[in-house]
């Protein structure tokens, strides 16, 4: 398409929006509300994906060893575990290290609190940390380890957290998607209505364009641009709002680093993902609205 033609299409689209200012405003508002809800949803969706991903990276099976094992037996056991097909990595964490980690986690008070627990009094077991090859197989692998002939006292892994997170996200997703799709349909119909008004207002021009042999797409383009314009303008406010709210959430939650489980996605990558998605969605709703009207009312 030629630049001149493109400019013309944009001009016509803009004139269409201006001509039906109130109707366009209503459509833009409907798009904005829809996209705001989608935006919140996207924030959750992206974060849940991010968190599960982060968790997956952390998920390790901790196999506590019975205290009586000799270092040779521990090495033997570690070798056997490493030989399992589902295991990506396994390493021995001696109880001294366990104590050290715990002390560090407690910060300044740790030294005092855990004083006197070194050496023989150390209550921590020696642990073998196992990383599964596939996080999905964590549970199976844990069971396998639990059934190991001897040497392992207890097997722990982060089952509860991951499962609950995934269940919750699935549930939220379905509710929001159904609700959101309903709203998106409504917004598309409002847009199609404004496009219909433009088509009616321009029916004489359209008739002349047909008569003089304008191509079908030449006639249709301005309406698609008008719809996309409404969709994209409708995306500005919700995007800003969602990002501002997210920044606020980050600031207030980020104050306490102890919520390791609530490790939120950083602003930059979330911002890019969410804004792009909201704008693309807005443009898509707009184009859909135009398409409905162009198909129904634009007789070419």
């Amino acid at each position: 398409m030629k630049i001149d033609t493109m400019i013309r299409h944009f001009r016509e689209a803009y004139r269409g929006v201006r001509r039906n200012a109130w109707m366009s405003f209503a459509a833009i508002s409907a798009v904005a509300v829809t996209l705001f809800i989608f935006g919140i949803f996207l924030v959750f969706a992206f974060n849940i994906r991010y968190m599960t991903h982060e968790l997956d990276k952390q998920v390790a099976i901790r196999a506590s060893l019975v205290p009586q094992l000799t270092p040779q037996q521990q090495d033997e056991l570690l070798k056997n575990i490493k030989a399992l097909p589902k295991v990506k990595e396994a390493k021995l964490v001696p109880k001294e290290q366990g104590l050290k980690i715990m002390k560090e986690a407690w910060g300044e008070d740790g030294e005092e609190f855990f004083a006197g627990l070194e050496g023989d009094k150390n209550p921590f077991p020696d642990v073998i940390e196992v990383q599964p090859k596939d996080p999905q197989q964590t549970e199976e692998l844990a069971k396998e380890l639990d059934n190991f002939p001897n040497g392992i006292e207890r097997v722990d892994y982060g089952e509860a957290v991951t499962d609950r997170l995934l269940n919750f996200s699935g549930w939220v997703r379905n509710v929001v998607l159904i609700f959101g799709l309903g709203l998106a349909t409504l917004a598309a119909f409002l847009i199609s209505n404004t496009i219909k008004l433009t088509i009616i207002a321009r029916r004489q021009e359209i008739e002349i364009m047909r008569l003089v042999g304008a191509s079908n797409w030449f006639i249709r383009w301005p309406f698609f641009i008008e719809g996309a314009f409404i969709g994209v303008v409708g995306a500005i406010v919700p995007t800003t709002l969602v990002l501002v709210l997210y920044q606020a959430a980050l600031t207030s939650l980020g104050a306490g680093e102890q919520y390791a489980i609530l490790k939120l996605m950083p602003m930059l990558s979330l911002g890019i993902n969410v804004s792009l998605s909201i704008f693309a969605l807005g443009a898509a709703i707009g184009m859909l609205g135009s398409m409905i009207s162009v198909r129904r009312f634009l007789k070419i």
Binding site: K2, D4, T5, R8, Q204, E205, E207, I208, M209, L211, V212, G213, A214, S215, F218
Partner: peptide, 20 residues
């Protein structure tokens, strides 16, 4: 006639613009 509400010049130019 079926003229559009624009100048005579624009009405005629419109036909040429429409076919790019």
């Amino acid at each position: 006639f079926k003229l559009l509400n624009m100048t005579a010049y624009d009405n005629v130019a419109f036909a040429l613009e429409a076919i790019e």
